[in-house]
């Protein structure tokens, strides 16, 4: 397992409030990694930093074999480097069909004139089908995605992430609002995806994390409180105090 992403000494504050405080974390490839923590622990801000939405006040974020810094890149450049993000609230393009949504996410040249003049890659349709099979939406390809159920939208969003073919997948509370069956499906998707790439799951729901059966990092007040297997961290007294004990 190689190190894909290295976050070291990152801090960021909003109006004096330290959302992230000297955070260091390493993600390998392939790896399934869960980040848990109470509200306000800095989970979402942590993802914002990785994807370029928020610039930290200090610290380094180093990516890949060439050890490039992600801090100088824009959101779209980071996405093109191979970091995909799934938001807490499903954000698919509701006015467009499932097919269009997936096709937009496919890993292809992304400049305007490429889209206008280059013929589509021949395998595009095949890839769209493969992904829709994987997320169980092959029957709904020509449906407007606004008409999908909440869970289907979550899967479509994960499907769009897979279409991007990222090396690192950031998933924010994927199981929120899902039925037990849908949760199981989602777990399978994530575990399967993590066989070939790095997947970081930010979760609130302990049961869901237990089912992922992976390395866990507990965040508290913007820094790492404990790291290890779920069993390991749940035995940690600090973790029990700040999180589980409540």
């Amino acid at each position: 397992m190689n190190t894909l992403l290295e976050v070291s000494g990152v801090s960021v504050s909003f109006d004096g409030f330290k959302a992230i405080n000297n955070l260091s974390i390493q993600i390998g490839e392939p790896e399934l990694h869960a980040v848990i923590g109470p509200n306000g622990a800095g989970k979402t801000t942590f993802m914002d930093i990785l994807t370029g939405k928020t610039k930290p006040d200090e610290g380094r974020v180093i990516w890949g074999e060439r050890s490039v810094s992600l801090l100088e890149m824009s959101e779209s450049q980071i996405a093109q480097e191979g970091i995909g993000r799934k938001f807490q609230k499903p954000t698919v393009f509701e006015a467009q069909t499932v097919r269009e949504n997936i096709a937009m996410a496919l890993k292809n040249p992304r400049r305007p004139f490429d889209l206008l003049f280059k013929r589509r890659a021949d395998d595009a349709e095949a890839r769209v089908r493969a992904i829709s099979d994987e997320i169980g939406l092959s029957d709904a390809l020509d449906q407007t995605s606004g008409a999908l159920s909440h869970g289907q939208k979550q899967w479509l969003e994960i499907g769009m992430l897979l279409a991007q073919d990222p090396r690192l997948l950031l998933v924010d509370e994927p199981a929120a609002g899902m039925s037990p069956a849908e949760r199981e499906h989602t777990t399978d998707l994530l575990v399967r995806a993590a066989k070939t790439r790095a997947v970081v799951v930010v979760e609130h729901d302990m049961e869901f994390v237990r089912r992922l059966n992976c390395k866990v990092t507990v965040l508290h007040q913007g820094s790492v409180l404990a790291e290890g297997s779920l069993d390991h961290v749940t035995k940690n007294q600090d973790v029990v105090d700040v999180y589980l004990g409540r």
Binding site: K53, R85, M104, Q164
Partner: peptide, 19 residues
């Protein structure tokens, strides 16, 4: 498709890797 997506949710399009 990308243009309409920008209209509906610009930030999301950015995270898909579009400039």
């Amino acid at each position: 498709s990308v243009i309409r997506a920008i209209r509906d949710n610009e930030a999301r399009v950015r995270f898909l890797g579009y400039h």
